[in-house]
Write a protein that binds this DNA or RNA. Structure first.
Lengths: 163, 163
DNA sequence: CGCGTATAGATATGACGTATAACAGTTACG
DNA sequence: CGTAACTGTTATACGTCATATCTATACGCG
C-alpha cells in the first residue's frame, strides 16, 4: 500500500552491469580480492613441487629453525596442534624432514629438514620469489615498502583489536 | 655438504625464538596475516547484526543493484550458484530481501531489499566503516591510496587471463 | 510447430580446512 | 610422591566450497 517506492525502473528488470561501489570504499574488500589472486597463483607455483601453502610454510619454518618443536611450529603457522600433525606426517613420509626426539624433553620432537628437504626448500622458494616478482613488477620500491608497512601495522593491531 | 651445517648449537636443542625471515620477504605473507586480522575483526563487527561476511556482501550488492538475478549475484561474490541459494534463502527468511519473479525471464528471480533490509544495510555498513577506520587510523591518505592502488593492480592481473 | 540445446535456480553430496574433546606419555612443582 | 601442566596424537564435528544432477524455462533452428 505504501506508494513511496524509490524504484526508477520497472521491477524485475535486471541491471546490465552490476555495481559494487559500496564495497569499494573498504580496504578489506580490495585486500580480499588481491589476496585471492595471489594465493591462487601461488598454489599453481607450488604445484610442481607437490607443496600446498601450509606445507611449504612449514618446510620453510623448519628449515630456518632447526630443532624446533611441533607446538612452536603450530604457533608460528597459526594452526592448531592436531592439524599440524598430518602436515608434519606428510613432510616426514616424503623424507623432507625428520622427527628426532628432543634431547631436553622426551615428550617433544626436534624437527629438522633433510638434504632433500633443503633442496626442495631452495627450489620452491625460488619459484615463490618468481611468483612474487610477477605481482611486484608494476610497483616501485617505495610503493612496495608502503604496502608492506601498512600490512605490518595492521598485523600489529592483532591483539588489541580482539578484546 | 657434510660439514657445511650452520648449526651453532646442539642438535635437538629447541630455538628459543622462532624466525620467519624467509617468509618475511614475501608480500603475500604480509597480506595473508593482515587480511586475517581484518577479517577476524570484521566478523566481530558484523556479529551484532547476525550477518556473516558473505551475507553482508550479498545484502550490499542486492541493495546497490535492485532487480539483479541470483546468477549475477553469485558472479560478483565469486561463489558458486548452489552455495548462493542458501545465502539468499537466509536473507529472504529474515525478510531482508524479496525474491520476485523476473518480468523478462520466468526462470530467474529479481532480488530486491525490503525496508528492513535497507535499514540493516545502513546500520551494518556504518559498523563496517567504523571497523575500517580503526585500521586506517594510522595511515595517511596518500598511504591508503597507495595501498588501494596496489591491491587493485594485483586484482587486475586476474581478469586479464579470463576475459 | 517440434526438437535439441542452453540457462536459472535448487538439491544432494563429497572434499577440504579448521576447531574441540579426550587420551597417553612426560615433565614440573609443591 | 602426587597433582597439575605440557607434547604429541586420535577421533570428531562443523563450516566452507565445488561438483553432479535435477526441474523448469528460454532460445535457436529446421
Amino acid at each position: 500500500m505504501a506508494g513511496s517506492d524509490k524504484i526508477a525502473k520497472l521491477p524485475g528488470t535486471p541491471p546490465g552491469r552490476i555495481s559494487d561501489e559500496t564495497l569499494r570504499q573498504f580496504i578489506g574488500y580490495y585486500m580480499k580480492r588481491a589476496y585471492n589472486v595471489i594465493q591462487s597463483d601461488l598454489v599453481n607455483a607450488l604445484k610442481p613441487y607437490e607443496l600446498r601453502l601450509v606445507t611449504y610454510s612449514a618446510l620453510v619454518i623448519i628449515h630456518d629453525n632447526p630443532g624446533l618443536r611441533q607446538s612452536q611450529l603450530a604457533d608460528v603457522l597459526a594452526i592448531e596442534r592436531p592439524n599440524l600433525v598430518v602436515i608434519v606426517d606428510e613432510l616426514e613420509q616424503r623424507d623432507l624432514i625428520v622427527r628426532d626426539r628432543s634431547a631436553v624433553d622426551r615428550r617433544a620432537y626436534a624437527l629438522r629438514v633433510t638434504k632433500a628437504g633443503a633442496a626442495l626448500y631452495d627450489a620452491a622458494t625460488k619459484a615463490v620469489q618468481d611468483h612474487e616478482d610477477k605481482f611486484c613488477a608494476g610497483m616501485s620500491p617505495e610503493q612496495r615498502a608502503t604496502v608492506l608497512d601498512a600490512m605490518n601495522s595492521i598485523w600489529n593491531m592483532k591483539t588489541e583489536a580482539s578484546s
